[in-house]
Design a protein around this nucleic acid. Structure first.
Lengths: 347, 347
DNA sequence: CTGTTAGCGCATTCAA
DNA sequence: TTGAATGCGCTAACAG
């Protein structure tokens, strides 16, 4: 009550309760082999002192730290924030703390964040690798001695399980859908082309175009709004302008919506639009925007569940080394040219 | 290289380097009073083993933990995610890890998250209190013995500094703006009315209405879309329907946009709209939505800076016990009835 | 059922 | 400039 700075220790609790530290420890850890009376005394001492176990000491003893690390590109990004929340829910259910660190999709930041995380001796790690080919990270993971699960992106040569979504297939199906609408000149607008998920989506697009015998049209330039605007305007003024756009991430999609609005290009009559990754007002805009919807929470949740399964030593899981692949969902609204909104769930 | 599970320790390094642990320790910590040759030997041993200092052991020795805790209602929420990112940036700049835990705005979860955080013996704490009147939390903070800064909401009786935004004043000004447009029956749509920030906004609204001699019209019901839809429809069908709506958080604002779209109520001609808290496509919707824009990153950043200032013992700060209040910004677009968009910055 | 004790990895004495 | 010894708070093993 009156104490302020130095946090109370177990031995203070024990002293106040008039018992040995071992006994106090047993009470703190669930109270097996402790008599009811002792239990009460110790508990009230804990209350009185406001005792909280010192995590560092537990770590030092070498047991479970009840901590897992989460390494994501960004925490402000809706996608990863939602994954993080889903993972956190699972972690809490296992009475463990999720520590988040960010990579900004840069291998350097990734390694340094990882180091900082490792200081806390997490029981396991959840990682969205910046680069699936990163040998250094793969080696680190292999030698870390703790279970690691990657999600959203794989990590080749790491030997750890991963949970992905079918970017390739979803992009292929989405493109195919545009093709079924009769569009021939489908522009694929790419930013951050170095990212694994984006590359997969480009592959899916290319595959679909090839299947249909259409000329692919990939624009890998427009990183910011201004550039995208200029680039899009140029495409539209070209001799053979595109009749549809497939954007590969939701910020690109909103950017295109804004740009087309400014340019007064009607959607979909002049230019159809289909985006990868849903966003909050996609269904409310005029026209509503058709998108590929990712199983965001599922990714985070499944990855976390897998990690805890491995932590609890389910050996069956050990054998599964192929990634778990979750399906994306094509949500058809108006911007692709569809007239009817099939389900109103997303309203 | 070949070792996998148990992380190498300082004494292994020392042994490999053929020196004592004390010497190795000195090398790790900057290498004062170490000969060049010894230095080299130890460093290469560190390299060889992939040694990383055990954070727990250092903590146990009683030094700084280079860790600060962040306690927010949610991590998936854009507002808090952005605050968290801003705070994280500051934390990293101070070489410390930000550990995030969530409260879901519930005092119970808040205390338990706080306990888990405290096990990690953070050097300081950043808190968005669920309830500013929470005596238990205030007492905890007072006795914690570490610097605490709250942001977005105060914590009365805790004696700690806080960084707020001027919810009251911004809501008042926003309402006044609607009043200047000539609207008389301005509906204030409230959800989560128990939250401090929301209450402040309601106060601002009421104050403005009173100043103007108008009858306030507060609806504190609609927690979800379905309810909101019904409630809004009822208001519009009533004998004296509102001519403007002031929504107090951005999810309400988008909800209203969607509902009015479905109801085919034109904005702003039949019903004007002004929302608290900006959102990504607010400027792109038709009509674009006028909003109060909060200094989101500033809140997180300033709070973190204040915390580190206190950690570094700047005593000048100690004396400032009144909260730092950051200004919100009224961004006028079309939905309130404004014809011109004053600045195109937010496009 | 309970008390005592060793030792986790490290920084920091203190002696050499 | 260096090595050895101490103790941080805790849990697990063991002795009572």
């Amino acid at each position: 009550m009156r104490k302020s700075n130095p946090q109370p220790t177990l031995s203070e609790v024990a002293r106040l309760a008039g018992v040995g530290v071992g006994t106090a420890s047993r009470v703190v850890n669930g109270g097996v082999n402790v008599s009811a009376g002792t239990m009460r005394k110790v508990k009230s001492a804990i209350q009185e002192l406001g005792y909280m176990p010192n995590h560092a000491a537990r770590v030092l003893k070498g047991g479970r730290t009840k901590t897992v690390g989460l390494l994501v590109p960004s925490i402000a990004d809706h996608f990863f924030a939602s994954c993080a929340e889903a993972a956190d829910k699972i972690a809490r259910a296992h009475d463990t703390l999720l520590i988040v660190a960010v990579t900004r999709n840069q291998c350097g930041d990734e390694m340094s964040s990882l180091e900082v995380l490792m200081r806390h001796r997490p029981d396991g790690l959840l990682i969205v690798p910046s680069d699936p080919e990163n040998k250094e990270l793969a080696r680190f993971v292999r030698n870390s001695g703790i279970p690691v699960v990657t999600f959203d992106r794989p990590l080749f040569g790491s030997g750890c399980s991963s949970v992905l979504s079918d970017n390739f297939e979803a992009a292929r199906k989405a493109t195919l859908h545009l093709i079924e609408h009769g569009y021939k000149r489908i522009l694929c607008l790419v930013s951050e082309p170095e990212l694994y998920t984006i590359r997969e989506r480009v592959r899916g697009y290319l595959q679909a175009m090839e299947e249909a015998g259409l000329q692919p049209l990939v624009d890998t330039g427009p990183e910011d709004m201004a550039l995208a605007s200029r680039s899009l305007a140029a495409h539209l003024k070209s001799r053979r302008p595109p009749d549809a756009v497939f954007t590969l991430k939701n910020s690109s999609t909103s950017a295109v919506v804004q740009i087309l609005r400014q340019l007064r290009i009607p959607i979909p009559s002049r230019l159809a639009l289909l985006g990868f990754d849903d966003f909050e007002l996609a269904g409310t805009l005029h026209p509503s925007i058709s998108v590929v919807q990712q199983p965001i929470e599922d990714l985070g949740r499944t990855a976390a569940e897998l990690l805890f399964a491995e932590l609890e030593g389910h050996p069956s899981k050990k054998t599964r080394r192929e990634p778990i692949v979750l399906a994306n969902r094509l949500v058809l609204r108006r911007s692709c040219g569809c007239k009817e909104v099939p389900a109103r769930k997303d309203l």
